[in-house]
Design a protein around this nucleic acid. Structure first.
Lengths: 230, 230
DNA sequence: GGCGTAACATGAGTCATCCTCAGGTTAGCG
DNA sequence: CGCTAACCTGAGGATGACTCATGTTACGCC
């Protein structure tokens, strides 16, 4: 019990001065940057192979061909490593989404939901380790103690950050100032629900149960319909 | 990696002959039964105090005033212990739900959603360790490898089992034979989504963010509305 | 009572894993 | 060539899950 608390505090203070949470040293030189990326890639591979519970830091270090100490130069602990991977995945996802929305601007809630989910499913199928992406503040590794949370932005949960970026991509939703807060709330709920249902879809079928994916779309469209002004 | 695999196999075979998964010896005598319950109660307490990550089997044993070996007589491993608690919580929840539906039979989807969520929120506030209840097959501790799953029933996920029992309580939903499978699917999706959003509600506010709880109801009603024949 | 047997109980010890840190190596510079 | 600072390393400390040899009880049988 004490151990957990102290560790969380150490982590916080270590990352307190402006850096991303849980990260120790951002790689400054080319060689370091390559190692950093290699560690993250190996982490993704191993997550797909042995799952989160089976992931060991020594296995990551071994396959990435770096000594274990190097891993801990970049990442404060195992959680931070996985979280950094999740953040990278999330960034990729948001980038791709922005691109697709730029290509074919969505005109309705259905469009947004379809594109966002299809893109998610595609990445989940093709990107190693994408399964650890969790819009819900990384509940898989935070484990009920809010002090353990690693956040994408400072002081807001992952899903809030994602919701805000998603908001920028959906200008056609109603937006009287009074409703803006409500829309952010709705988008947070959407993220969390979508993530959960899609996790279920990939749990019951490694390539994503089509029926559940379809149902996920229905869920979101039905919910968000009330905010759409056509 | 091998370790994880072997452990999962051992667990399965140990519980293979009809017993609940992950359980070793069902207490047969009064003294044993009391110890069993005490272990589960302490587990719930500690989960609220230190969270899942901070939970140690030795701490449970110490506070329950049983030697560590006794814990492992009942439970194959730490997961099994937590899962047994979740199962007990789930049972309590379903019992209470059946009772409330018996008192005031719900006449609409709104009624069901309101009662089910309010009851969940109430238990979450009052029952120690209720936070570990997870309709989604216990994704917190299963960690991506399906072999690690501990199931409520045999061979179906938790949420499917819950969905089926919930179906028995909602006879007023449309039920042509062809649609029955679709309704089960919808209820599974509902469980998963509701669980996720409510977890978020309690993450952002220890007593459950009212706005998110309200939003959760809206989500479910909007989704299930299509299945309601009034 | 004495004895055999089987079920149950115990906690010191084994082992895997996370993470640290003292000491080594390299790079840059005068 | 010597000095400093940054970076790298992996043996080892600490912790915690889980085991298993040994001890204890229960119970029947002679």
């Amino acid at each position: 019990m004490e151990t957990t608390t102290e560790r969380a505090e150490n982590t916080e203070s270590a990352a307190g001065a402006g850096g991303a949470p849980g990260l120790r040293r951002r790689p400054m030189q080319r060689r370091s940057a390559e190692r950093y990326e290699r560690i993250l890639n190996v982490c993704a591979e191993l997550l797909d192979e042995v799952g989160f519970a089976g992931l060991t830091t020594t296995a990551v270090a071994k396959r990435a061909e770096v000594p274990i100490g190097t891993v801990y130069q970049f990442f404060a602990d195992k959680s931070a490593l996985v979280h950094a991977l999740a953040t990278r995945n999330l960034q990729t996802y948001l980038d791709r989404l922005a691109y697709r929305f730029g290509q074919t601007p969505p005109g309705s809630v259905e469009d947004v939901v379809t594109i966002a989910i299809d893109e998610f499913v595609d990445m989940r199928r093709t990107q190693p380790g994408f399964g650890v992406l969790d819009f819900g503040a990384g509940s898989k590794w935070s484990e009920a103690d809010p002090r353990d949370l690693y956040l994408l932005d400072e002081s807001v949960e992952n899903n809030t950050a994602v919701a805000r970026r998603m908001r920028l991509l959906t200008p056609f939703l109603a937006s009287s100032d009074a409703e803006e807060a409500q829309i952010e709330l709705a988008l947070r709920v959407t993220m969390e629900a979508a993530d959960a249902v899609l996790q279920m879809a990939f749990r019951s079928d490694p390539s994503g149960d089509p029926a559940l994916i379809e149902e996920c779309k229905r869920l979101l469209v039905a919910y968000l319909g009330r905010y759409y002004v056509g």
